[in-house]
Design a protein around this nucleic acid. Structure first.
Length: 494
RNA sequence: GGCGCUAUCGUCUAGGGGUUAGGACGUGAGAUUCUCAAUCUUAAAACCCGGGUUCGAUUCCCGGUAGCGCUACCA
Protein backbone atom coordinates (compact mmCIF):
# COMPACT_ATOMS: atom_id res chain seq x y z
CA UNK A 1 0.00 0.00 0.00
CA UNK A 2 1.45 3.30 -0.94
CA UNK A 3 1.64 6.20 1.37
CA UNK A 4 1.35 9.70 0.04
CA UNK A 5 1.03 11.29 3.43
CA UNK A 6 3.60 13.92 2.62
CA UNK A 7 1.07 15.35 0.24
CA UNK A 8 -2.07 14.73 2.17
CA UNK A 9 -1.91 18.03 3.96
CA UNK A 10 -3.23 19.68 0.88
CA UNK A 11 -5.40 18.02 -1.66
CA UNK A 12 -6.79 20.96 -3.49
CA UNK A 13 -9.20 20.61 -6.28
CA UNK A 14 -8.09 22.90 -9.07
CA UNK A 15 -9.70 26.23 -8.64
CA UNK A 16 -11.93 27.10 -11.55
CA UNK A 17 -10.58 29.65 -13.90
CA UNK A 18 -12.51 32.81 -14.12
CA UNK A 19 -15.02 32.42 -16.87
CA UNK A 20 -13.29 35.03 -18.96
CA UNK A 21 -10.16 32.96 -19.52
CA UNK A 22 -10.56 30.13 -21.91
CA UNK A 23 -6.94 29.18 -22.41
CA UNK A 24 -5.48 25.85 -23.33
CA UNK A 25 -5.19 23.41 -20.45
CA UNK A 26 -3.15 20.26 -20.87
CA UNK A 27 -1.83 17.73 -18.44
CA UNK A 28 0.83 15.14 -17.94
CA UNK A 29 -0.61 12.24 -16.01
CA UNK A 30 1.96 9.58 -15.22
CA UNK A 31 1.26 6.46 -13.25
CA UNK A 32 3.84 6.02 -10.49
CA UNK A 33 4.32 2.35 -11.13
CA UNK A 34 7.79 2.94 -12.49
CA UNK A 35 10.35 5.65 -13.04
CA UNK A 36 9.88 8.36 -15.61
CA UNK A 37 10.68 6.52 -18.78
CA UNK A 38 11.66 7.83 -22.16
CA UNK A 39 8.17 7.67 -23.61
CA UNK A 40 6.59 9.36 -20.63
CA UNK A 41 9.24 12.03 -20.69
CA UNK A 42 8.48 12.81 -24.28
CA UNK A 43 4.77 12.99 -23.59
CA UNK A 44 5.52 15.36 -20.75
CA UNK A 45 7.80 17.37 -22.99
CA UNK A 46 5.21 17.69 -25.76
CA UNK A 47 2.59 18.81 -23.26
CA UNK A 48 5.00 21.31 -21.81
CA UNK A 49 6.04 22.62 -25.23
CA UNK A 50 2.44 22.93 -26.30
CA UNK A 51 1.36 24.67 -23.12
CA UNK A 52 4.24 27.10 -23.33
CA UNK A 53 3.75 27.66 -27.03
CA UNK A 54 0.14 28.69 -26.66
CA UNK A 55 0.54 30.31 -23.29
CA UNK A 56 -1.65 27.67 -21.71
CA UNK A 57 -1.58 25.80 -18.44
CA UNK A 58 0.17 22.52 -17.73
CA UNK A 59 -1.24 20.36 -14.98
CA UNK A 60 0.62 17.50 -13.36
CA UNK A 61 -1.53 14.67 -12.16
CA UNK A 62 -0.34 11.47 -10.55
CA UNK A 63 -2.52 8.53 -11.55
CA UNK A 64 -1.97 6.33 -8.55
CA UNK A 65 -5.21 4.41 -8.41
CA UNK A 66 -3.32 1.16 -8.81
CA UNK A 67 -2.50 0.85 -5.15
CA UNK A 68 -0.72 -2.45 -5.65
CA UNK A 69 1.95 -1.01 -7.88
CA UNK A 70 2.12 2.70 -7.14
CA UNK A 71 4.74 3.90 -4.72
CA UNK A 72 5.80 7.27 -3.44
CA UNK A 73 9.40 6.49 -4.46
CA UNK A 74 8.20 6.36 -8.04
CA UNK A 75 6.42 9.68 -7.61
CA UNK A 76 9.67 11.19 -6.39
CA UNK A 77 11.50 9.63 -9.29
CA UNK A 78 9.06 11.08 -11.80
CA UNK A 79 9.26 14.53 -10.24
CA UNK A 80 13.02 14.30 -10.28
CA UNK A 81 13.03 13.29 -13.92
CA UNK A 82 10.79 16.17 -14.90
CA UNK A 83 12.88 18.64 -13.01
CA UNK A 84 16.05 17.32 -14.61
CA UNK A 85 14.47 17.87 -18.01
CA UNK A 86 13.48 21.37 -17.00
CA UNK A 87 9.78 20.67 -17.36
CA UNK A 88 7.73 22.86 -15.08
CA UNK A 89 4.01 22.68 -14.45
CA UNK A 90 1.50 25.23 -13.37
CA UNK A 91 -0.93 23.24 -11.28
CA UNK A 92 -0.53 20.15 -9.17
CA UNK A 93 0.73 17.62 -8.63
CA UNK A 94 -2.71 16.26 -7.94
CA UNK A 95 -3.03 12.73 -6.70
CA UNK A 96 -5.91 10.59 -7.83
CA UNK A 97 -5.63 8.55 -4.67
CA UNK A 98 -6.82 11.63 -2.83
CA UNK A 99 -9.74 12.35 -5.07
CA UNK A 100 -11.63 9.10 -4.75
CA UNK A 101 -14.93 10.68 -3.88
CA UNK A 102 -14.96 12.53 -7.19
CA UNK A 103 -14.86 9.23 -9.07
CA UNK A 104 -17.43 7.60 -6.83
CA UNK A 105 -19.75 10.52 -7.44
CA UNK A 106 -19.22 10.30 -11.18
CA UNK A 107 -20.00 6.58 -11.10
CA UNK A 108 -23.14 7.20 -9.06
CA UNK A 109 -24.24 9.83 -11.50
CA UNK A 110 -23.82 7.41 -14.38
CA UNK A 111 -25.79 4.73 -12.60
CA UNK A 112 -28.48 7.24 -11.77
CA UNK A 113 -28.81 8.51 -15.32
CA UNK A 114 -28.93 5.01 -16.71
CA UNK A 115 -25.52 5.01 -18.40
CA UNK A 116 -24.03 2.52 -16.02
CA UNK A 117 -25.15 -0.40 -13.87
CA UNK A 118 -24.03 -2.50 -10.97
CA UNK A 119 -22.29 -5.73 -11.86
CA UNK A 120 -22.23 -8.52 -9.32
CA UNK A 121 -20.01 -10.85 -11.30
CA UNK A 122 -16.84 -11.64 -9.40
CA UNK A 123 -13.36 -11.25 -10.80
CA UNK A 124 -13.04 -15.03 -10.72
CA UNK A 125 -16.20 -15.49 -12.76
CA UNK A 126 -14.89 -13.02 -15.27
CA UNK A 127 -11.52 -14.72 -15.50
CA UNK A 128 -13.22 -18.06 -16.09
CA UNK A 129 -15.47 -16.58 -18.68
CA UNK A 130 -12.60 -14.99 -20.50
CA UNK A 131 -10.51 -18.14 -20.46
CA UNK A 132 -13.41 -20.14 -21.84
CA UNK A 133 -14.17 -17.60 -24.51
CA UNK A 134 -10.65 -17.44 -25.81
CA UNK A 135 -10.37 -21.24 -25.71
CA UNK A 136 -13.34 -21.35 -27.99
CA UNK A 137 -11.74 -18.76 -30.21
CA UNK A 138 -14.28 -16.09 -29.41
CA UNK A 139 -13.43 -12.53 -28.51
CA UNK A 140 -13.93 -12.32 -24.77
CA UNK A 141 -16.54 -9.68 -24.17
CA UNK A 142 -18.51 -9.23 -21.02
CA UNK A 143 -21.78 -11.11 -21.61
CA UNK A 144 -23.75 -8.29 -20.01
CA UNK A 145 -25.43 -10.60 -17.55
CA UNK A 146 -25.82 -7.88 -14.96
CA UNK A 147 -26.93 -5.33 -17.51
CA UNK A 148 -30.20 -7.22 -17.62
CA UNK A 149 -30.82 -6.97 -13.90
CA UNK A 150 -33.60 -4.61 -13.02
CA UNK A 151 -32.03 -1.39 -11.66
CA UNK A 152 -34.24 -1.40 -8.59
CA UNK A 153 -33.29 -4.98 -7.87
CA UNK A 154 -29.62 -4.15 -8.41
CA UNK A 155 -29.87 -1.18 -6.11
CA UNK A 156 -31.42 -3.42 -3.44
CA UNK A 157 -28.65 -6.01 -3.71
CA UNK A 158 -26.04 -3.30 -3.62
CA UNK A 159 -27.75 -1.78 -0.61
CA UNK A 160 -27.76 -5.15 1.08
CA UNK A 161 -24.00 -5.12 0.90
CA UNK A 162 -23.42 -7.41 -2.04
CA UNK A 163 -20.08 -6.48 -3.64
CA UNK A 164 -20.67 -4.79 -6.95
CA UNK A 165 -18.59 -3.14 -9.62
CA UNK A 166 -20.02 -0.41 -11.77
CA UNK A 167 -19.99 -1.04 -15.49
CA UNK A 168 -20.61 1.38 -18.29
CA UNK A 169 -23.52 0.64 -20.55
CA UNK A 170 -21.89 0.78 -23.97
CA UNK A 171 -24.35 1.56 -26.76
CA UNK A 172 -25.30 -1.62 -28.61
CA UNK A 173 -25.09 -0.16 -32.06
CA UNK A 174 -23.60 2.63 -34.00
CA UNK A 175 -20.06 3.86 -33.84
CA UNK A 176 -17.99 6.30 -31.90
CA UNK A 177 -15.96 8.78 -33.88
CA UNK A 178 -13.50 11.42 -32.86
CA UNK A 179 -11.23 13.75 -34.71
CA UNK A 180 -7.72 13.24 -33.47
CA UNK A 181 -5.45 16.26 -33.86
CA UNK A 182 -2.68 13.99 -35.07
CA UNK A 183 -4.41 11.08 -36.80
CA UNK A 184 -7.55 12.72 -38.03
CA UNK A 185 -10.87 10.94 -38.01
CA UNK A 186 -10.86 7.67 -36.09
CA UNK A 187 -13.93 5.47 -35.88
CA UNK A 188 -14.79 2.46 -33.72
CA UNK A 189 -17.84 0.25 -33.90
CA UNK A 190 -19.65 0.20 -30.57
CA UNK A 191 -20.33 -3.54 -30.85
CA UNK A 192 -16.63 -4.12 -30.44
CA UNK A 193 -16.48 -2.39 -27.11
CA UNK A 194 -17.59 -4.28 -24.06
CA UNK A 195 -19.33 -2.90 -21.02
CA UNK A 196 -16.17 -1.86 -19.21
CA UNK A 197 -15.76 -1.45 -15.49
CA UNK A 198 -15.81 2.08 -14.14
CA UNK A 199 -15.62 1.40 -10.44
CA UNK A 200 -14.18 -1.78 -9.01
CA UNK A 201 -16.12 -3.60 -6.36
CA UNK A 202 -13.77 -2.14 -3.75
CA UNK A 203 -14.81 1.36 -4.82
CA UNK A 204 -11.56 2.18 -6.60
CA UNK A 205 -12.09 3.65 -10.05
CA UNK A 206 -10.51 2.20 -13.15
CA UNK A 207 -8.42 4.28 -15.46
CA UNK A 208 -11.21 5.27 -17.80
CA UNK A 209 -13.37 6.73 -15.09
CA UNK A 210 -10.64 8.51 -13.19
CA UNK A 211 -9.06 10.12 -16.26
CA UNK A 212 -12.33 11.37 -17.59
CA UNK A 213 -13.61 12.56 -14.23
CA UNK A 214 -10.37 14.38 -13.61
CA UNK A 215 -10.00 15.76 -17.09
CA UNK A 216 -13.48 17.18 -16.74
CA UNK A 217 -12.88 18.47 -13.25
CA UNK A 218 -9.57 20.02 -14.25
CA UNK A 219 -11.15 21.42 -17.40
CA UNK A 220 -8.65 20.04 -19.83
CA UNK A 221 -8.96 21.38 -23.35
CA UNK A 222 -6.47 19.04 -25.02
CA UNK A 223 -5.40 15.53 -24.23
CA UNK A 224 -1.88 14.97 -25.53
CA UNK A 225 -0.83 11.43 -24.76
CA UNK A 226 0.74 8.28 -26.12
CA UNK A 227 -0.86 6.55 -29.06
CA UNK A 228 -1.28 3.49 -26.88
CA UNK A 229 -4.40 5.27 -25.70
CA UNK A 230 -5.90 5.66 -29.13
CA UNK A 231 -8.03 2.55 -28.72
CA UNK A 232 -9.14 3.71 -25.28
CA UNK A 233 -10.42 6.97 -26.58
CA UNK A 234 -13.88 5.84 -27.76
CA UNK A 235 -14.63 4.56 -24.27
CA UNK A 236 -13.66 7.87 -22.84
CA UNK A 237 -15.62 9.78 -25.39
CA UNK A 238 -18.68 7.76 -24.42
CA UNK A 239 -18.07 8.78 -20.84
CA UNK A 240 -17.94 12.45 -21.72
CA UNK A 241 -21.20 12.09 -23.57
CA UNK A 242 -22.88 10.17 -20.78
CA UNK A 243 -21.74 12.81 -18.34
CA UNK A 244 -23.05 15.53 -20.61
CA UNK A 245 -19.72 17.25 -21.02
CA UNK A 246 -18.05 18.28 -24.28
CA UNK A 247 -15.01 16.27 -25.27
CA UNK A 248 -11.55 17.80 -25.21
CA UNK A 249 -9.38 17.61 -28.29
CA UNK A 250 -7.35 14.42 -28.43
CA UNK A 251 -3.84 14.36 -29.84
CA UNK A 252 -2.16 10.99 -29.79
CA UNK A 253 1.57 10.82 -30.09
CA UNK A 254 3.19 7.79 -31.74
CA UNK A 255 5.28 5.57 -29.53
CA UNK A 256 9.01 5.26 -29.15
CA UNK A 257 10.50 1.94 -30.13
CA UNK A 258 13.81 0.21 -29.53
CA UNK A 259 16.30 -0.40 -32.35
CA UNK A 260 14.57 -3.69 -33.12
CA UNK A 261 11.34 -1.77 -33.62
CA UNK A 262 9.62 -3.36 -30.70
CA UNK A 263 8.34 -1.30 -27.87
CA UNK A 264 11.16 0.33 -25.94
CA UNK A 265 11.96 -1.67 -22.83
CA UNK A 266 14.77 -2.52 -20.46
CA UNK A 267 16.06 -4.96 -23.01
CA UNK A 268 17.11 -1.98 -25.10
CA UNK A 269 19.15 -0.44 -22.31
CA UNK A 270 18.19 2.50 -20.20
CA UNK A 271 14.53 3.40 -20.22
CA UNK A 272 14.58 5.58 -17.15
CA UNK A 273 15.29 9.20 -17.89
CA UNK A 274 17.55 9.47 -14.89
CA UNK A 275 19.77 6.76 -16.30
CA UNK A 276 20.69 9.18 -19.06
CA UNK A 277 21.68 11.80 -16.54
CA UNK A 278 23.79 9.14 -14.89
CA UNK A 279 25.41 8.40 -18.21
CA UNK A 280 26.54 11.97 -18.53
CA UNK A 281 23.89 13.28 -20.90
CA UNK A 282 23.10 16.95 -20.38
CA UNK A 283 19.39 17.68 -20.02
CA UNK A 284 19.20 20.15 -22.89
CA UNK A 285 20.59 17.54 -25.25
CA UNK A 286 18.15 14.95 -24.07
CA UNK A 287 15.28 17.36 -24.38
CA UNK A 288 16.27 18.41 -27.87
CA UNK A 289 16.68 14.81 -28.94
CA UNK A 290 13.35 13.81 -27.44
CA UNK A 291 11.52 16.72 -29.01
CA UNK A 292 12.60 15.59 -32.44
CA UNK A 293 11.47 12.01 -31.90
CA UNK A 294 8.07 12.08 -33.49
CA UNK A 295 7.88 15.77 -34.11
CA UNK A 296 9.45 18.01 -36.75
CA UNK A 297 9.29 21.76 -36.97
CA UNK A 298 8.12 23.36 -40.19
CA UNK A 299 11.69 24.15 -41.11
CA UNK A 300 13.30 20.80 -40.51
CA UNK A 301 16.77 21.87 -41.54
CA UNK A 302 17.78 23.04 -38.10
CA UNK A 303 17.98 20.33 -35.48
CA UNK A 304 19.91 21.82 -32.62
CA UNK A 305 17.15 23.77 -30.93
CA UNK A 306 17.14 25.30 -27.48
CA UNK A 307 14.06 25.40 -25.32
CA UNK A 308 13.02 28.85 -26.52
CA UNK A 309 13.15 27.73 -30.11
CA UNK A 310 11.38 24.47 -29.40
CA UNK A 311 8.58 26.31 -27.65
CA UNK A 312 8.29 28.80 -30.44
CA UNK A 313 8.23 26.15 -33.16
CA UNK A 314 6.14 23.48 -31.51
CA UNK A 315 2.86 22.61 -33.11
CA UNK A 316 0.51 19.65 -33.05
CA UNK A 317 0.49 19.26 -36.80
CA UNK A 318 4.21 18.58 -36.82
CA UNK A 319 3.67 15.39 -34.87
CA UNK A 320 4.44 12.25 -36.84
CA UNK A 321 1.93 9.49 -37.46
CA UNK A 322 4.32 6.62 -37.15
CA UNK A 323 6.41 5.26 -34.32
CA UNK A 324 10.01 6.35 -33.93
CA UNK A 325 13.08 4.35 -33.04
CA UNK A 326 15.21 5.62 -30.21
CA UNK A 327 18.61 6.30 -31.79
CA UNK A 328 21.30 6.38 -29.16
CA UNK A 329 23.98 7.53 -31.60
CA UNK A 330 21.99 10.63 -32.40
CA UNK A 331 21.45 11.36 -28.72
CA UNK A 332 25.20 11.20 -28.25
CA UNK A 333 25.66 13.58 -31.13
CA UNK A 334 23.27 16.08 -29.53
CA UNK A 335 25.16 15.63 -26.29
CA UNK A 336 28.50 16.52 -27.85
CA UNK A 337 26.91 19.52 -29.51
CA UNK A 338 25.49 20.77 -26.25
CA UNK A 339 28.59 20.11 -24.17
CA UNK A 340 30.67 21.98 -26.68
CA UNK A 341 28.26 24.89 -26.78
CA UNK A 342 27.79 25.03 -23.03
CA UNK A 343 29.61 27.91 -21.36
CA UNK A 344 32.42 26.29 -19.39
CA UNK A 345 31.39 28.01 -16.17
CA UNK A 346 28.00 26.35 -16.48
CA UNK A 347 29.65 23.04 -17.15
CA UNK A 348 31.73 23.21 -13.99
CA UNK A 349 29.03 22.21 -11.51
CA UNK A 350 27.92 19.35 -13.74
CA UNK A 351 31.49 18.21 -14.12
CA UNK A 352 32.02 18.42 -10.39
CA UNK A 353 29.16 15.97 -9.96
CA UNK A 354 31.02 13.55 -12.15
CA UNK A 355 34.21 14.00 -10.16
CA UNK A 356 32.34 13.33 -6.99
CA UNK A 357 30.92 10.14 -8.40
CA UNK A 358 34.34 9.06 -9.62
CA UNK A 359 36.03 9.93 -6.36
CA UNK A 360 38.22 12.45 -8.09
CA UNK A 361 39.57 15.37 -6.12
CA UNK A 362 40.72 18.11 -8.48
CA UNK A 363 44.38 19.00 -8.17
CA UNK A 364 43.44 22.63 -7.87
CA UNK A 365 40.57 24.33 -6.13
CA UNK A 366 40.95 27.36 -8.36
CA UNK A 367 37.61 27.60 -10.13
CA UNK A 368 38.96 29.83 -12.88
CA UNK A 369 41.68 27.31 -13.59
CA UNK A 370 39.17 24.47 -13.65
CA UNK A 371 36.94 26.39 -16.02
CA UNK A 372 39.88 27.07 -18.29
CA UNK A 373 40.71 23.40 -18.35
CA UNK A 374 37.12 22.47 -19.12
CA UNK A 375 37.25 25.00 -21.93
CA UNK A 376 40.34 23.27 -23.25
CA UNK A 377 38.92 19.77 -23.34
CA UNK A 378 35.15 20.07 -23.69
CA UNK A 379 35.03 19.99 -27.47
CA UNK A 380 36.29 16.43 -27.28
CA UNK A 381 33.71 15.26 -24.78
CA UNK A 382 31.04 12.82 -25.75
CA UNK A 383 29.53 12.77 -22.31
CA UNK A 384 30.02 14.44 -18.95
CA UNK A 385 31.62 11.21 -17.86
CA UNK A 386 34.65 12.00 -19.98
CA UNK A 387 35.63 14.76 -17.57
CA UNK A 388 36.25 12.18 -14.91
CA UNK A 389 37.34 9.53 -17.36
CA UNK A 390 39.53 10.12 -20.34
CA UNK A 391 40.20 13.74 -19.28
CA UNK A 392 41.08 12.77 -15.75
CA UNK A 393 44.76 13.67 -16.08
CA UNK A 394 43.77 17.27 -16.71
CA UNK A 395 42.20 17.56 -13.33
CA UNK A 396 44.06 15.13 -11.12
CA UNK A 397 47.53 13.73 -10.63
CA UNK A 398 46.17 10.28 -10.07
CA UNK A 399 45.12 8.81 -13.35
CA UNK A 400 45.58 5.69 -15.37
CA UNK A 401 47.72 5.54 -18.47
CA UNK A 402 45.88 3.96 -21.36
CA UNK A 403 48.02 0.92 -22.26
CA UNK A 404 47.03 1.18 -25.90
CA UNK A 405 48.23 4.78 -25.99
CA UNK A 406 51.53 3.86 -24.37
CA UNK A 407 51.93 1.04 -26.82
CA UNK A 408 51.19 3.30 -29.74
CA UNK A 409 53.41 6.26 -28.96
CA UNK A 410 55.81 5.33 -26.19
CA UNK A 411 56.95 1.85 -27.03
CA UNK A 412 60.32 3.13 -28.30
CA UNK A 413 62.72 3.43 -25.30
CA UNK A 414 64.67 6.08 -27.18
CA UNK A 415 61.61 8.31 -27.29
CA UNK A 416 61.08 7.87 -23.59
CA UNK A 417 64.68 8.80 -22.92
CA UNK A 418 64.31 11.88 -25.06
CA UNK A 419 61.21 12.97 -23.20
CA UNK A 420 63.16 12.94 -19.96
CA UNK A 421 65.80 15.05 -21.56
CA UNK A 422 63.17 17.36 -22.98
CA UNK A 423 61.76 17.77 -19.51
CA UNK A 424 65.04 19.23 -18.29
CA UNK A 425 64.93 21.79 -21.06
CA UNK A 426 61.48 22.86 -20.00
CA UNK A 427 62.77 23.27 -16.47
CA UNK A 428 65.07 26.00 -17.58
CA UNK A 429 63.30 27.89 -20.35
CA UNK A 430 62.58 31.48 -19.55
CA UNK A 431 59.03 31.37 -20.79
CA UNK A 432 56.43 28.63 -20.66
CA UNK A 433 53.94 29.53 -23.34
CA UNK A 434 52.42 27.64 -26.23
CA UNK A 435 54.93 29.26 -28.58
CA UNK A 436 57.97 28.67 -26.42
CA UNK A 437 57.11 25.10 -25.52
CA UNK A 438 56.57 24.28 -29.17
CA UNK A 439 59.77 26.01 -30.18
CA UNK A 440 61.76 24.09 -27.58
CA UNK A 441 60.30 20.79 -28.65
CA UNK A 442 60.83 21.36 -32.35
CA UNK A 443 64.40 22.53 -31.86
CA UNK A 444 65.03 19.55 -29.68
CA UNK A 445 63.57 17.22 -32.28
CA UNK A 446 65.72 18.51 -35.10
CA UNK A 447 68.75 18.40 -32.83
CA UNK A 448 68.07 14.74 -32.21
CA UNK A 449 67.15 14.11 -35.82
CA UNK A 450 63.70 12.79 -35.01
CA UNK A 451 60.32 13.87 -36.21
CA UNK A 452 58.64 16.41 -34.02
CA UNK A 453 55.41 14.41 -34.30
CA UNK A 454 56.99 11.45 -32.55
CA UNK A 455 57.92 13.59 -29.56
CA UNK A 456 54.62 15.41 -29.60
CA UNK A 457 52.61 12.21 -29.55
CA UNK A 458 54.85 10.66 -26.96
CA UNK A 459 54.58 13.74 -24.79
CA UNK A 460 50.84 13.69 -25.08
CA UNK A 461 50.69 10.21 -23.68
CA UNK A 462 53.18 11.08 -20.95
CA UNK A 463 51.18 14.15 -20.01
CA UNK A 464 47.63 12.87 -20.25
CA UNK A 465 47.80 9.10 -20.26
CA UNK A 466 45.80 9.21 -23.45
CA UNK A 467 46.48 9.13 -27.15
CA UNK A 468 43.65 11.60 -27.60
CA UNK A 469 43.87 15.10 -26.24
CA UNK A 470 43.89 18.71 -27.36
CA UNK A 471 46.85 20.43 -28.92
CA UNK A 472 49.92 19.37 -26.95
CA UNK A 473 51.31 22.81 -26.23
CA UNK A 474 47.99 24.06 -24.97
CA UNK A 475 47.99 21.05 -22.71
CA UNK A 476 51.46 21.87 -21.43
CA UNK A 477 50.54 25.43 -20.62
CA UNK A 478 47.36 24.31 -18.98
CA UNK A 479 49.18 21.78 -16.86
CA UNK A 480 51.88 24.26 -16.03
CA UNK A 481 55.61 23.89 -16.09
CA UNK A 482 55.89 21.86 -12.93
CA UNK A 483 53.46 19.13 -13.85
CA UNK A 484 54.67 19.04 -17.42
CA UNK A 485 58.21 18.47 -16.32
CA UNK A 486 57.28 15.91 -13.68
CA UNK A 487 55.12 13.88 -16.03
CA UNK A 488 57.65 13.96 -18.85
CA UNK A 489 60.29 12.69 -16.49
CA UNK A 490 58.07 9.83 -15.52
CA UNK A 491 57.81 8.82 -19.17
CA UNK A 492 60.68 6.41 -18.64
CA UNK A 493 58.61 4.29 -16.28
CA UNK A 494 55.65 4.00 -18.58
C1' G B 1 -8.03 -14.07 -33.17
C1' G B 2 -10.93 -9.13 -33.31
C1' C B 3 -10.41 -3.92 -33.69
C1' G B 4 -7.37 0.47 -34.45
C1' C B 5 -3.02 3.08 -36.17
C1' U B 6 1.22 3.23 -39.27
C1' A B 7 4.59 2.29 -43.61
C1' U B 8 10.39 7.48 -47.67
C1' C B 9 18.04 5.89 -46.97
C1' G B 10 20.43 1.55 -41.18
C1' U B 11 17.94 5.64 -37.84
C1' C B 12 15.13 10.57 -37.24
C1' U B 13 12.62 12.85 -41.06
C1' A B 14 11.27 16.69 -45.43
C1' G B 15 8.47 16.39 -49.64
C1' G B 16 4.67 15.52 -52.72
C1' G B 17 0.45 13.49 -59.19
C1' G B 18 5.77 14.96 -63.53
C1' U B 19 11.78 16.29 -58.34
C1' U B 20 18.83 14.62 -59.91
C1' A B 21 13.25 12.28 -53.85
C1' G B 22 16.09 17.06 -49.76
C1' G B 23 18.31 17.42 -44.74
C1' A B 24 20.31 15.35 -40.07
C1' C B 25 22.68 11.18 -37.25
C1' G B 26 25.51 7.03 -38.37
C1' U B 27 28.89 4.61 -42.06
C1' G B 28 33.06 4.73 -46.12
C1' A B 29 36.92 7.76 -48.62
C1' G B 30 39.89 12.12 -48.90
C1' A B 31 41.94 16.99 -47.20
C1' U B 32 44.11 19.23 -42.77
C1' U B 33 47.07 18.36 -38.46
C1' C B 34 50.59 17.00 -33.38
C1' U B 35 46.77 12.42 -31.70
C1' C B 36 41.64 12.57 -31.46
C1' A B 37 37.38 15.44 -31.88
C1' A B 38 36.04 19.43 -34.86
C1' U B 39 36.12 21.48 -39.81
C1' C B 40 35.99 21.02 -45.21
C1' U B 41 35.23 17.86 -49.58
C1' U B 42 33.15 13.47 -51.02
C1' A B 43 30.75 8.43 -51.51
C1' A B 44 27.27 4.64 -50.63
C1' A B 45 22.28 4.55 -48.81
C1' A B 46 15.07 4.97 -49.20
C1' C B 47 9.58 5.85 -51.42
C1' C B 48 6.92 -2.36 -48.30
C1' C B 49 4.14 -5.48 -52.18
C1' G B 50 -0.07 -5.92 -55.63
C1' G B 51 -4.07 -3.82 -58.01
C1' G B 52 -6.72 0.39 -59.53
C1' U B 53 -7.59 6.14 -60.75
C1' U B 54 -4.57 9.03 -64.18
C1' C B 55 -1.21 10.88 -69.99
C1' G B 56 1.75 10.00 -65.59
C1' A B 57 2.03 7.48 -59.25
C1' U B 58 6.54 7.23 -54.23
C1' U B 59 2.37 10.78 -53.56
C1' C B 60 -4.75 9.57 -54.25
C1' C B 61 -8.08 4.89 -53.56
C1' C B 62 -8.53 -0.41 -52.46
C1' G B 63 -6.34 -5.03 -51.01
C1' G B 64 -2.16 -7.69 -49.03
C1' U B 65 1.95 -7.87 -45.87
C1' A B 66 4.61 -6.22 -41.80
C1' G B 67 5.24 -3.42 -37.28
C1' C B 68 3.05 -1.32 -33.20
C1' G B 69 -1.16 -0.48 -30.00
C1' C B 70 -5.82 -1.86 -27.60
C1' U B 71 -8.61 -6.08 -26.52
C1' A B 72 -8.26 -6.43 -17.46
C1' C B 73 -12.39 -5.11 -11.37
C1' C B 74 -3.50 -2.12 -14.92
C1' A B 75 -2.69 2.75 -16.33
Amino acid sequence: MSDFSQNSSSNPSPTPLSSTTGGVRVRFAPSPTGYLHVGGARTALFNWLYARHVGGTLILRIEDTDFERSTSEMVDGILQGLSWLGITWDEGPFYQSQRMDLYARAAEKLVANGHAYYCFCTKEQMDDYRAKASNEGRTPMYPETCRKIDPAEAARRKQAGEPAAVRFKVPEHGSTVFDDAVFGKVEFQNEEIEDFVLLRSDGVPTYHLSVVADDIDMRMTHILRGADHLSNTPKQKMLYEALGVPCPIFAHVPLILGPDKTRLSKRHGATSVMAYRDEGIVPEAFRNFLALLGWTPKDSSKEVLGDRELIELFSLDGIAHSNAVFDRAKLDWFNTEYIRAYPSEKLLPLVEEEWKKAGLVPGTADAAQLVATIELVKSRARSLKDFAGSFRAFFSDTYENDPAAVEKFLKDPAVREMLVELASRYETTAEFTEQSTEQVLRDFASEKGVKAGALINGSRVALTGQAVAPSLFAVMVNLGRERTVARLKRAKEL
